[in-house]
């Protein structure tokens, strides 16, 4: 009788022990509220993470750098954001890994737009070949705009040292500076560039993707996670790839005339992403904005290692990345195979 009682108690308690083990693995993921993280948002909304046994908790950030730092410090398990010279230096110290791709510049798709101010345009800054000696607004030294301008300069055989690179810390001040002609040139995401061109506040010089492909965003993982929990990372990346492939299907298809296809699938995906990106807009407006500002994301989620190496090489030449940084040490392509 007594024996049975204890056995019964043990049986009653059993589920309490079992449940946590079978529950989803909790992971914290740092993101910016940008369309480029659409793959993550779709994977979350469509339950790909849940199906992989993951309980994904997004943490929202205002800038790219803090996400990388938070992964390095162990506060985040994963993060998706732009790669800057600072990120490479951090990765070079062996504190974070690049495990998949995110946003990219790709020929034929909308992306970072090069603008000239009105006065500069009148002065003759009318194309990429006329950029010699101009002043250029970027967010920060070693940012993606800095790199892209450097690539343009290289392609056009200009001396970058003669350009006045002006770090303005944020997109808003870059917009203000180009509007008021305080700088000659700037590089902006399409959703900021298009209104300026439409209103006549600045002149369109071209898309960066005319010059080269550029892998500017990546999915990062903490070193601890990648080393000790390969299974979890694999599940996370696979679910993310599923999201990226949905994203590509929805936004990156083109019709015979080369125009992006907008169908029900596009709208459905845009509505889901809009909830994350434009939290304060009415859903239909937000959905529309998503469709018009969708950027290129590789459907496979695979990282372009050669491009990463090219970027590091360029940053090293300007002493913006430490000489001992090696891409192979922190780019892990194993999970996107």
């Amino acid at each position: 009788m007594r024996f049975n009682f204890i056995a019964g108690l043990a049986l009653a308690m059993l589920p309490a022990f079992v449940t946590p083990a079978s529950a989803a693995d909790k992971v914290n993921v740092g993101v910016l509220r940008f369309v480029s993280s659409g793959g993550l948002f779709l994977a979350q909304e469509r339950g790909y993470f849940k199906d992989a046994g993951l309980d994904v908790n997004f943490k929202y950030f205002q800038a790219a750098q803090p996400i990388a730092v938070a992964i390095a410090s162990g506060d985040l398990d994963f993060g998706a954001t732009a790669i800057t010279a600072g990120t490479y230096n951090l990765a070079g110290k062996g504190v974070l890994k690049i495990i998949a791709s995110q946003g990219a510049e790709r020929k034929g798709y909308d992306g970072t737009t090069v603008l000239a101010s009105n006065t500069a345009f009148q002065r003759g800054v009318t194309g990429f070949d006329k950029l010699a000696g101009t002043s250029v607004a970027v967010t920060q030294v070693g940012s993606s705009q800095h790199y892209m301008f450097g690539q343009i300069a290289e392609a056009e055989h200009l001396d970058l040292a003669k350009n006045n690179i002006k770090p303005l810390q944020g997109i808003a001040s870059m917009v203000a500076a180009i509007k008021t002609s305080q700088v000659d040139v700037t590089l902006l995401p399409p959703q900021f560039a298009q209104p300026l061109v439409k209103s006549g506040d600045a002149h369109y010089l071209g898309l960066f993707s005319q010059i080269a492909d550029y892998q500017y965003g990546a999915l990062f993982g903490s070193v601890k996670m990648v080393a000790n929990n390969k299974d979890l990372v694999k599940r996370f990346v696979t679910a993310y790839q599923h999201g990226c492939s949905d994203y590509a299907k929805a936004f990156l298809q083109k019709d015979a005339s080369g125009k992006p296809v907008v169908n029900d699938d596009t709208k459905a995906a845009a509505a889901l992403i809009a909830k994350y990106v434009f939290t304060s807009l009415p859903p239909d407006v937000a959905t529309d904005k998503i469709i018009h500002s969708a950027v290129f994301v590789d459907a496979s989620g695979k990282i372009n290692l050669a491009d990463i190496e090219r970027q590091i090489q360029w940053y090293k030449s300007l002493k913006l990345v430490n000489p001992d940084v090696d891409a192979k040490a922190f780019v892990d392509q194993e999970f996107t195979k």
Binding site: G86, V141, G142, P167, A177
Partner: peptide, 21 residues
């Protein structure tokens, strides 16, 4: 020196911070 400074101790410190140097 956060705004558009190419040179300066403040700009240098900011850039070094951004570059994680």
């Amino acid at each position: 020196e956060m705004i558009g400074a190419q040179h300066g101790l403040g700009a240098m410190v900011l850039a070094a911070g951004n570059l994680m140097q």
